[in-house]
């Protein structure tokens, strides 16, 4: 209260000076006064009150109707003051939420972390970048020590915190299946049941699951409505879409997924991704499939991780460094 009284003197002098000189200097100081008042949480009705009191002191003979009109104005300002205070509280709350989310995002990173396998026969590159703080994409590698590498790529339709929570559940279900049977169709069938039972009906999850057997170089895979990947034939220097049918996870309780198999030759590549890659946009223009494949080809002399990194850099720049959707890209290449 004492600081406010001090300010009253100050305000009175400023007002007096302004009335006399119409000087910009006084107006500039008024601006400073208002900022200072906001910092001290002084609401508009209090400023008007200071104004009324200053007027009374400067003009002791101020007409009664001016006084009344000022009181009227003061009354109308009460709600503005309340709205301002509410805004302040909500802003503090928002900062709190933001920092909570960043803690959660870090936890998620730890939870969902996966180790990129280091195999002699196949070269693996993987990258997943969230558009916002939390990632709604998921990829995971599992090795069985017998030369099999399982690769899961999933995407929750939806973004942010709910998508991230959902992914954590998927990760734990996958962990609990591991070691039982690794057929992609069986894994997707099991996951589908878990998702159907536990996840809100408005949330959809797509997943591609592939198993690379490095003993006979076969790639077995199934898809639950996931964005099609690509297969690169080294000998023909051609790409082919890996588009296989399969219902999105969680829609219906009993779904059986079909499983496909491919023989992988030396130098062939398997490219798995999420729609954050295929739905990259430059302005309003969607980037077409050809362009992605073109960029991959351009860097195909690099190791798999190098290709993945360069593709990301290329599209990040095309999108002015602001991802619209989570971006996940995995490339496998048979070395020997």
């Amino acid at each position: 209260m004492s600081t406010l009284k001090l300010d009253l003197e100050n305000y009175k002098e400023l007002l007096q000076e302004y009335i006399k000189t119409k000087d910009e200097q006084a107006l500039y100081q008024a601006e400073q006064f208002s900022k200072h008042s906001m910092q001290q949480n002084i609401s508009p009705e209090e400023i008007i009150n200071v104004h009324i009191q200053s007027l009374q002191e400067i003009y002791p003979d101020m007409p009664e109707y001016i006084q009344s009109s000022m009181n009227f104005l003061l009354e109308t300002m009460i709600s503005y003051g309340l709205a301002y205070q509410e805004f302040q509280t909500l802003r503090e709350k928002q900062l709190e939420l933001k920092s909570e989310i960043s803690v959660a995002a870090n936890m998620q990173k730890t939870l969902l972390s996966t180790v990129k396998p280091d195999l002699s026969d196949i070269d693996v590159g993987a990258l997943s970048v969230p558009a916002k703080q939390m990632n709604g994409d998921y990829h995971h590698f599992v090795e069985d020590g017998k030369g099999n590498l399982g690769i899961a790529v999933a995407d929750v339709i939806g973004k942010g915190v709910p998508a991230a929570l959902c992914m954590s559940m998927i990760k734990y279900s996958m962990d609990s299946f591991s070691g039982i049977r690794t057929d992609p169709s069986v894994i997707l069938g099991n996951l589908n049941r878990v998702v159907e039972r536990n996840v809100d009906a408005s949330m959809f999850i797509t997943m591609f699951y592939g198993l690379y057997n490095s003993n006979d170089h076969t790639f077995t895979y199934s898809s639950a409505g996931h964005e099609p990947g690509f297969y690169y034939y080294k000998d023909r220097d051609e790409f082919e879409e890996i588009d296989v049918p399969g219902l999105v996870l969680g829609v219906s309780p009993e779904v059986s997924y079909k499983q496909y198999e491919k023989r992988v030759e030396k130098g062939d590549m398997i490219i798995l991704l999420t729609d954050g890659v295929t739905e990259c946009r430059q302005g309003d223009r969607f980037i077409d499939q050809e362009e992605i494949l073109h960029v991959i080809k351009q860097y195909s002399h690099l190791p798999a991780q190098g290709i993945v990194d360069q593709v990301y850099k290329h599209f990040e720049r095309l999108q002015d460094f602001q991802l619209r959707d989570d971006f996940t890209l995995i490339i496998l290449r048979r070395n020997v």
Binding site: S79, L82, A83, Y84, E86, F87, T89
Partner: peptide
């Protein structure tokens, strides 16, 4: 809670009363 009132964002309602 702030922001709950049906009038929404006018700052009044019961949280406003508490502030006043």
């Amino acid at each position: 809670e702030d922001g709950f009132t049906t009038s929404g964002g006018l700052g009044a309602g019961l949280p406003g009363v508490k502030r006043l």
